[in-house]
Structure formats: C-alpha cells, structure tokens
Amino acid sequence: MGEPLLRVEGLRTIFQTGKQVVTAVSGVSYSVDAGETVGIVGESGSGKSVSMLAVMRLVPSPAGRITEGKIWFRGRNLLELDSAEMRAVRGKDIAMIFQDPMTSLNPVLSIGRHLVEPLKLHLGLTPSQAKTRAVELLQMVGIPDAANRLNDYPHQFSGGMRQRVMIALGLSCNPKLLIADEPTTALDVTIQAQIIDLVKRLRREFGMSVIWITHDLGIVAGLVDRVIVMYASHVVETAGVDDLYENPRHPYTLGLLSAIPRLDTAERTRLMPIPGKPPDLSNPPKGCPFAPRCGFSTADCLSEKPTLREVAPGHFSMCHLELSKQAFINLREVRVNA
C-alpha cells in the first residue's frame, strides 16, 4: 500500500487562556489508510476531539492554536492550505459528525436547508437537484417519509434521528474520510447499535475511511481495523485491533483492558476508571505522562519522557519498558509479592 489517506506527524495543539497554556495535543503522529477504520480511545480530556478538530483546522481560535506538525491528506499538507482551499476540503473530502446530535443542527433551519447547503456548495447542484439528493440521503440513513420531513426542524426529530441526519449530512458529498467523534455517546443502547450498523453499511457503500472516537472499547472491537490509544494529549499505543486486545504493550492500555471482564465477547462495557487522575495539561510532568498512575514506573519514567516506538510490526507503544503483556503481568505479581 502506498501513501496513507491521512498522515499526521508530530501534531501539537495548545490552548492559551491568559498566562496559562494547555497542551491538548502533544506531538501526535498516526496515519489512516484508505478504506481503513481507525478507533481512537482514551479518557475524556485526553485530546481526542482536539486532535480531530486540528485535522479539520477548526480548533477554536484565538485560544487554540496548532503549533507544530504536518497533516498530510491525499498528498497535501492541510496546514499549508489557504482558507478557501481548506473550506473545499471540509465537508467534501473530510466530513465530521459530532457527539451531541441535539446541538449540532441549527435549531432555526429546516433539515432540508441543512442538507441542501453543502450539496450546492461543494457539488454545485441546482436547488431542485439538491432537494432530490437530500431526500435520497435521508432515505439512505433510514429516515422514514423522507420527502415530507425536509421542511421539518431539528426539534421535530428524536436524538437518534438527528444523528442519522448528521450522518446523511456528513456523507452528502461522498467524503474520503468520515470523522465520527463519539457519535453514539449521547444515545441509548439500542439506538447506538443501529447507528453503528448504519455506519458499517455505509462505509462499505461509500468506500471511505472512518475515524471513530469512542469511550466504548466494546464498540471498537467489532467496528475498527486499528486502535489508537490516547492519554494526556499523547498517543500512547497504536496497533491492529486484535493485536492490541491480545497483546497490549502499554501499561495504560493494559489497565483499560483488564478493567473489561471478557474481551472476546461483543458485550459492551464502558471504560473502567484507572485509579488516579490524568496530569494537569497546563503543567505536564517532565517524564512519562502516565508515571503518576503507572504501576510499573521507575526512576527513569519520572525524568525522561518515552517516545512512541515500534515494539512489534505495526504495533507502537510509548513506554520505556518494552515488555509483552505477559511480562507486565509477571512483573506486577513480583511487585505485589515483594
């Protein structure tokens, strides 16, 4: 396979409020291949959303800024595009759907107006073409009586239906990459499953790549090809989904997974909290960001920050200890017994 669809290199994003500087994304690198679905997991506040907003160049300014890195998308560094070029990418090549379907639609505009807008903008459709296409899109995401609902307003739709509308909106211009930022977190379980099935189906039909951000490791297991684990603004581990589940190589991932009783089932389980809190991003520790909570930390860990290294083919981990899962478990027993 040649150049990946999206390659993020050393991305750093900060928020500056007054004197305080919060590093929301520090030196993150990853890539997404064409047709691949990548999951990003991590605790709340670990930088998942911001790193995606950075890709869209929609980090809220003036507080937020991308200070370092490159974002290669189909051979172009998005960070070097002018604003008109970037607008042509948004919604057309890369679409994004958000966590809260209740607030992501403009409450005073009809669903039809929402749908027609990008169709006219990016595809140059005439109003009547756009309307026809809008109805098709709504049918495609499973909204009954689509033609009649174009004139309805967001508040006349349920949460699940609104997320379907958001998906329809996201897919309206056949994007190469769909970024879904916790798209089901706000929905109840049965609706979640429907939405996931919908995306699974549509990603095949559209042949697009998907980045799926979630809290829910259970979802990731059945949905994605590869997982990126984020912790405190860093990518701490990335690997193929099976590889990661079977042989996690980072103590944080290990902690996440051991909190799940049965990995091999499709039973969905929320991330279990690991004792302790993530570090203050405005004043990050000098060494490993996980060190304060890590059961394996050494003196080295406190003084020196590990780098993301390939510990097995296609498997990267940001830890001084290049140990296997079993070695970690053994080590823990040794510590506990001592």
């Binding site: 907003l53 869209m56 929609l58 809220p60 607008r87 042509a88 990418v89 948004r90 919604g91 057309k92 679409a95 994004m96 958000f98 809260d100 607030t103 992501s104 639609l105 403009n106 409450p107 807008e117 990008p118 903008l121 990016h122 958001m166 909106l169």
Partner: peptide, 18 residues
C-alpha cells in the same frame, strides 16, 4: 459562534460569512 451547530456548519465547509 461558540455553539456546536456553528462548528458543525464550518465542518461542512461553509465560509465564515455564510
């Protein structure tokens, strides 16, 4: 401008003016 629907609109490629 701080609300989600605005970010979502921008994410669909709308100009600042639009």
């Amino acid at each position: 401008l701080d609300k989600n629907y605005v970010t979502a609109a921008r994410a669909r490629g709308l100009s600042e003016q639009a």
